[in-house]
Amino acid sequence: MPRIVLETVIAAPIVVAFDLSRSIDLHKRSTAHTGEQAIAGRMSGLIGMGESVTWRAKHFGLWQKLTSKITAFDPPRFFVDEMVQGAFRGFRHEHIFTEENGLTLMTDIFDYQSPCGIFGRIADTLFLERYMRNLLTERNRIIKEFAEDENKYCKVLQASV
């Protein structure tokens, strides 16, 4: 099972990084290149414990749906989303936040299982793990950009209320 671990240092309070990380609206911005849209469940605002969202996006030239649910939630330090239904055999995405000296360290731990047995493992090696790492890295770049710009994060968080 592949594991992707990313660490992003953000010059913003922990609560800002935490809330932007669970913003459906900001997630749509970070995945705009895939046409990703929330189509069921929590479709805008800030997702919370026990809530789910179904996404529709184009990956590898195919439209796909994926539903994930928040299964653990300890604001502003931690939350977990796990796939309920979708193209993977499963995934678990841990979002961990720590704050020190005015900086927030956002750590993503993304564990997933590809479908199709041996063919899925080959796809992981050839392209899928790199694709997922790039998708998460872009998401984190957008979170950092918005968290470090008060005008941007205020607009996103006001829209989320």
Rank of each mutant, 00 (worst) to 15 (best):
R141P: 12
Q37A: 02
R29T: 06
P76H: 00
T71I: 06
L20F: 01
T125V: 14
A38N: 00
E51F: 06
T125G: 15
L20H: 08
I96Y: 07
Q113Y: 08
S114M: 07
P13T: 15
A72V: 07
D124W: 08
I109A: 04
G48H: 10
T104G: 15
A57I: 11
P76Y: 04
D111F: 02
C154R: 13
L26A: 06
M49T: 09
F119S: 07
A87V: 13
A159K: 15
R42P: 13
A11G: 04
A87Q: 08
R22G: 14
E94W: 09
Q85W: 04
F73I: 07
I10D: 01
S68A: 15
E7N: 15
F91E: 01
E148G: 01
K65A: 09
P115G: 14
L157M: 10
E51S: 04
H93A: 02
D149T: 04
E150I: 00
A159W: 12
C116I: 13
F18T: 04
G90L: 01
M1N: 04
W63G: 09
R133K: 15
W63F: 14
G50V: 10
I143N: 02
M132P: 12
S68Q: 11
A32Q: 02
T31H: 09
V80Q: 14
W63N: 11
R121C: 12
I24S: 01
D74V: 10
E145P: 00
M106W: 06
R77A: 14
W55K: 03
V161H: 13
V156T: 09
I122C: 11
V84Q: 10
S114H: 00
K144R: 02
P2G: 05
M106H: 03
A12D: 02
E129Y: 11
Q37H: 07
A17C: 00
T54V: 13
L66S: 12
V15N: 10
L105Q: 07
Y153N: 04
M43V: 12
S30L: 04
G102T: 01
L135S: 08
C154P: 01
I109F: 08
I47E: 10
E94G: 08
R89I: 13
T125H: 15
V84Y: 14
H95E: 01
F18N: 02
I142E: 05
T104A: 02
E94I: 14
I39Y: 08
G86S: 03
I143D: 03
F79L: 04
R56I: 05
G35S: 03
A40Q: 06
R56D: 05
R139Y: 06
H95R: 04
T137A: 10
K28G: 07
A123E: 08
E51C: 01
